[in-house]
Amino acid sequence: MNRCLIIDDELPARQLIETYLEALPDFEVVKMFDNALDGFVYLQNNTVDLLFLDIQMPRMTGLELLKSLQKHPKVILTTAFREYAAEGFDLDVFDYLVKPISQERFLKAISKYLYFREITQQNVLDVSTFEDAYIFLKVNKEQKKVYLNEILYIEGLKDYIKVFTTQGRFVVYERLRYMEAKLPESKFVRLHKSYIVAIDKISAFSSELVKVQEYEIPVGRIYKQSFLNKISAGI
């Protein structure tokens, strides 16, 4: 069952999304809020799979909510303002629906979400066999086998990623969030909107910068606290 949370200050908007979800199997609305602050409190003690989030709300915007969370579920933004799309995707939102939201466009977002869940579930890794774990990545016209323990870090560039490994650098046609879902959380950390780093390859770090071999990688503001907590827990 996919647990869904709806945060929107407009009652008709909340009801519309709820109606769309009620028509789908394996989806349930566990809670709805008319403001982001109540949503923030709820997410501190509860987990959901999918968050439908408005942007323009009084007291606290949807984007401010995302920036305040150390880790957030998959997010579909629902807003009447197209101009926030770029900032939303910088915060790694899953999709961006512009009001009024048609059922066709809503179902397209759900289909995209379900496909993402399917491919990530098919690639769940057994961390106990991490030394032997590998992934096939499309490099040029062939699928290249890359061992996870050889990955140094991954840089995201819109629809492409650069995978830096002990065996060289590869350019792959894939999104960074796809890679984040496939990699074991105990071995890799997201420390910037554009970077994922192998924890055991970090040679030095501060609150602003991480060193991996000769590379220096910035720590993003919204990822800083979760990164420091994760690193400290492993020390």
Rank of each mutant, 00 (worst) to 15 (best):
residue 1 M to A: 08
residue 1 M to Y: 07
residue 6 I to R: 00
residue 8 D to I: 02
residue 8 D to V: 03
residue 9 D to W: 02
residue 10 E to I: 14
residue 10 E to A: 14
residue 17 I to T: 03
residue 20 Y to W: 10
residue 21 L to W: 06
residue 23 A to R: 10
residue 24 L to W: 02
residue 28 E to A: 14
residue 28 E to V: 12
residue 29 V to Q: 04
residue 29 V to Y: 03
residue 31 K to W: 05
residue 33 F to H: 02
residue 35 N to K: 04
residue 37 L to S: 08
residue 39 G to N: 03
residue 39 G to T: 01
residue 43 L to D: 00
residue 45 N to K: 15
residue 46 N to F: 06
residue 47 T to I: 10
residue 53 L to R: 00
residue 54 D to C: 01
residue 57 M to L: 05
residue 60 M to K: 04
residue 74 K to H: 13
residue 74 K to F: 08
residue 75 V to S: 00
residue 83 E to G: 02
residue 83 E to T: 00
residue 83 E to C: 00
residue 86 A to R: 07
residue 90 D to R: 02
residue 90 D to G: 03
residue 91 L to K: 02
residue 91 L to W: 01
residue 91 L to M: 05
residue 92 D to P: 01
residue 93 V to E: 00
residue 103 Q to L: 15
residue 103 Q to M: 13
residue 107 L to P: 05
residue 107 L to R: 11
residue 109 A to C: 08
residue 115 Y to T: 10
residue 115 Y to A: 10
residue 118 E to A: 11
residue 118 E to L: 12
residue 121 Q to I: 12
residue 121 Q to M: 13
residue 125 L to R: 15
residue 125 L to K: 15
residue 127 V to Y: 07
residue 131 E to Y: 09
residue 137 L to W: 04
residue 137 L to H: 09
residue 142 E to N: 15
residue 146 V to N: 04
residue 147 Y to D: 07
residue 147 Y to I: 10
residue 151 I to P: 01
residue 155 E to A: 05
residue 158 K to Q: 11
residue 160 Y to Q: 06
residue 160 Y to H: 06
residue 166 T to P: 07
residue 167 Q to N: 15
residue 168 G to R: 05
residue 171 V to W: 03
residue 171 V to G: 01
residue 172 V to G: 04
residue 176 L to V: 09
residue 177 R to F: 13
residue 182 K to A: 07
residue 185 E to H: 09
residue 190 R to T: 09
residue 191 L to M: 13
residue 192 H to S: 08
residue 193 K to Q: 15
residue 195 Y to M: 06
residue 195 Y to D: 03
residue 198 A to C: 09
residue 203 S to T: 15
residue 204 A to S: 15
residue 205 F to C: 07
residue 206 S to F: 06
residue 210 V to G: 02
residue 212 V to N: 02
residue 214 E to C: 08
residue 216 E to D: 12
residue 221 R to A: 13
residue 225 Q to Y: 11
residue 226 S to K: 13
residue 228 L to D: 08
residue 232 S to L: 14
residue 233 A to W: 10
residue 233 A to R: 14
